[in-house]
Nucleic acid binder design. Structure first.
Lengths: 101, 101
DNA sequence: ATTATAACTTTGCAATTCAAAGTACTTTTA
DNA sequence: TAAAAGTACTTTGAATTGCAAAGTTATAAT
């Protein structure tokens, strides 16, 4: 059993990690807020969002704010579990003990 | 200022993250131990090691154990700093507060 | 009617990742 | 002593990923 097998490949990327982190601490975050937060182009953001949605880690909700369209995202139960597992794996990785032998 | 700018791109990869983690808690680790620990092919490991060495994050030391060649690696001061900064950024990312407004 | 905003999709190139094969050198084994 | 095996790579090549830029659709403001 390798020490890195619990590290989720989906979260290898900084943008996806950032999206997930933002959604873990906020009930929902919209497209432009994420875009600003992560300093990425909209095409790039959209593609990472798509990747997370494909994994069923996040949920897309389209709405209107006044007369403007607004798309917001939230993390699913599965996404929460996956992210927590990832963080735990990172912690273990970092705090692992020296192995003797 | 983006919330992900302190996340080090070099550590986006699980293998490199694993190498660094192993070297942070062990004074040195040799090639075959890393290979086993991370469950990668030797070519793949060698290339990730090379990438870390190129950044001056790790140091290569060749020696003999008995009659066998043995290559071991250790983390440099720069590597330690970079890794710690990365971990700190991850922590901040995860524990960030809801921003109002 | 033109311009702007939102949230994309498409395109296409560049960088990354990885396994597999090849290499050089040494050592062990038959 | 010839063949096999181990160490630590390098090289090759193909697949995947990442990204910016441009294009798209639809509505809204001017």
């Amino acid at each position: 059993m390798s020490i890195i097998e619990n590290i989720n490949k989906t979260f290898d990327n900084r943008v996806r990690l950032g999206i997930m982190a933002a959604l873990m601490v906020n009930e929902s975050v919209d497209f432009n807020t994420l875009k600003e937060l992560l300093a990425v182009t909209d095409g790039n953001l959209a593609s990472h969002i798509k990747a997370l949605e494909k994994m069923d880690y996040i949920l897309i909700q389209k709405q209107f704010i006044g007369k403007k369209t607004n798309t917001k995202y939230s993390v699913t139960k599965l996404g929460k579990m996956a992210f927590k597992k990832h963080i735990k794996a990172l912690e273990q990785l970092i705090t692992q003990q020296k192995k003797s032998k």
